[in-house]
């Protein structure tokens, strides 16, 4: 018996709700908006299901729909230009800080074990939006640079540079949390 549209949709698209929701949460920073964003995404996907090329990457297609809705409807209406000063942050900022703590007690492992989930989520949510989106798509969802470029509608070079800067900002923020929470006692400079 031929499967109905809804049955196929459930099998192909609904399985990605969890991933979509996780990204939506980090982007909207609130559960109600995340729920609404995901619902809107799936309803739109269902309406346009005939346009989706069966066999192509459904997950990336859904993320593209969601990103468009987010950019158009959810992100702050008045966006001040994002000024991010990374002049004083080295590429190896976090690694350097942790290495400086001394080799004896494996500070990297200690750091990774101690930082709370909430702190990581918060650090991601506090990234400027442009960086946050590419960081989430890469780190959490494992999309390739090319897929991210397609989803967000950017050049691949821009994706790379945003990811690079986003990664630095994230490491810096997490280091600051760890120091603030006392997991790490900052090395005397």
């Amino acid at each position: 018996m031929k499967k109905t549209k809804k049955e196929i949709f459930e099998k192909e698209a609904m399985v990605h709700v969890e991933a979509l929701h996780r990204t939506a949460l980090r982007m909207t920073k609130n559960e109600n908006d995340a729920d609404d964003l995901v619902q809107e995404t799936l309803l739109k996907a269902y309406r346009f299901w005939d346009k989706f090329e069966q066999g192509s990457n459904c997950r990336a297609w859904l993320f593209k729909i969601m990103t468009n809705i987010f950019i158009n409807n959810y992100r702050a209406k008045t966006r001040s230009p994002q000024v991010v000063d990374l002049e004083d942050v080295d590429d190896d900022f976090l690694f350097g800080q942790l290495s400086a703590l001394g080799p004896s007690d494996d500070p990297e492992r200690h750091f990774f074990a101690k930082v709370f989930d909430d702190d990581v989520k918060k650090a991601i949510e506090e990234l400027p939006e442009d960086f946050r989106l590419v960081v989430v798509l890469s780190f959490l969802e494992g999309f390739s640079y090319q897929e991210i470029a397609d989803i967000v509608g950017l050049q691949i070079g821009t994706v790379k540079s945003r990811l690079h800067r986003g990664r630095k900002l994230l490491q810096k923020a997490l280091w600051e949390y760890a120091v603030k929470n006392g997991f790490i006692k900052e090395a005397a400079k």
Partner: peptide, 17 residues
């Protein structure tokens, strides 16, 4: 370190909702 960092962020921030 950078491999670990990537896994760490995913593990911490991608917990099931």
């Amino acid at each position: 370190f950078e491999y670990m960092f990537k896994t760490f962020v995913k593990d911490k921030a991608a917990s099931p909702e």
